[in-house]
Design a protein around this nucleic acid. Sequence first.
DNA 1: GGAGTGTTTC
Length: 629
Amino acid sequence: MINSIITPKLNYPHHTKQDNIHMNLSESTLNNLVQNFTYPIELKQIHANLIKSSVSPSILPLKKVTSVCALTTNFSYAQQIFRCLNKPEVIFWNCSLRDFAESKNPFNAILLFYQMREHNVCIDSFTCSYVLKACKELHDLVHGRIIFSYIEKLGYQKDLFLMNLVVHLYASCGDFDGARMLFDQMVEKDVVTWNIMITHLVKRGDVDGAYELFKEMPERSVRSWTSMIAGFVQCCRPKDALGVFVEMEEAGFRGNEVTVVAVLAACADVGDLDLGKRIHQYSNRMGFERNIRVCNTLIDMYIKCGCLDAARGVFREMKKRTVVSWSAMIQGLAMHGAAEEALKLFSEMIQTGVRPNDVTFIGLLHACSHMGLVNAGREFFASMNTDYGITPRIEHYGCMVDLLSRAGLLQEAREFIRTMPIQPNGVVWGALLGGCQVHKNIELAEEAIKHLQDLDPLNDGYYIVLSNIYADAKRWEDTARVRKLMRDRGVKKTPGRSIVTIKGAVHEFVAGDDTHPQSNEIAQTWDELLQLMKSKGYEPNTDVVLLDVEESEKEKFLYRHSEKLALVSGLINTSEGETVRIMKNLRVCEDCHAAFKVISEIVDREIIVRDRNRFHCFKQGSCSCGDYW
DNA sequence: GGAGTGTTTC
């Protein structure tokens, strides 16, 4: 096995330059000469001239010699040069190894390692570290294990640095159990060892296991805290992430740029604008405002907290922007229904010379579908491939089906799915189903649900939509049938949850919630509000209540939807004129949407609701979505 | 001459 690997095939560009180098070298030409060589053959010529002129080869620039020697197929020759440079030979090889490990073809580092063994170069711990690095780049556990056997043979198991590399390599090549075993066996561990394990536990989705280790570790660095915060964010537990952040502050640690990014991401997820703003100020105080990733995350945070203007501000202030900055902004404008501006921003981005990526197009298509820009959407979809060589992913197909379905082009959407080159997923059929609800097409909805029962059988949302469609058509028996189907399959309806932040404190409401300390006051205010709403023409839409109960009972359920409770609580606890921001885990219900429009006029306030899909900004009796959602 | 944390997604 090893023998086949030993045969070196180090590729280097063939060089044909045959300059004759003059025999009598002036000092300046000498200097010029020893600095200007790129290929082994040039080095050889220079070397020859140095010998002829009795100049010591040690004047050769070491870094250059090593990188050029790394290219040579003539190992013995390189060895000869290294030996006359008055330093341990292995140092030069290690430099070459590092260059290879960091190059586009890290496998050369592994080949070089075997050549070193073959030529009896004494390898040291640095040699091992560079080859391990190459193995990691290549995801090559086979050679990784071989290097580890050398480490054991040479007695380097006590080298913490190397052991950390090995643990990291094993874990990132999929042998987590092997990594864990090494970790458990290691007598001495440092912060890095623990951090590596925490990171990999998170990557496997075991964030609780990661937190156990985190609590167990004898000392923590900012990186440990950051890894833990980022870990909770990655595992969709932003509240726990913020909890760890609070602990970190209490422990007296101050976050770096990476911490800021992780915490801001958590703020974005839970919609904690107050904390987000505080982190923004901290970040500026620390001088992080020039960090592009920090700014990108700030944009995303402000967008997801409903502050489009603040996001625009951060975006405009950025000295440098990457495709991520533009894409985040385009996506944000899409979420807020500002399709025109999103499209304008895209043109601006192209003019600036930034190449869009696949995510940029998801944002663009998203913008088109939210505002019914069917033709623009179709053009963008075609242009992805023709103009930018980006192959549409399933997400793009999902956007297109969403765009067509919402616009009422249900047959075209169906045909689009039929001719898709990739297998449609639940999101694709779900988009069609959503369009069927808006445009009341029972037949296609039934077809969509057939596919969804296989593709995403436990997703309650789809059954609810179908049963809503039946309810809308007054087909109560079918409604009941769908609900029975859900019961039989053990599909539980996800309870609607809404949160509203009042003076920095998060208040969460579940539909029908009467556990809130202010629940009496909320009910009373609602009753008063309801009278005013009805006088303005609001009529409760009880069709959205899928319970088999009396009409008056249905109204009671309707009035205790989580977003209504959250809104009333927000109105009671904030001052006049203040904007109320609400976050909902599901899509906002049709009745609540109608109610919020009227309420925004009655109380003369802006109400911003972030639902699962997008933002609704209610103001003076209308919504920013233009009722197209 | 060597290690561990971060941004946009229907």
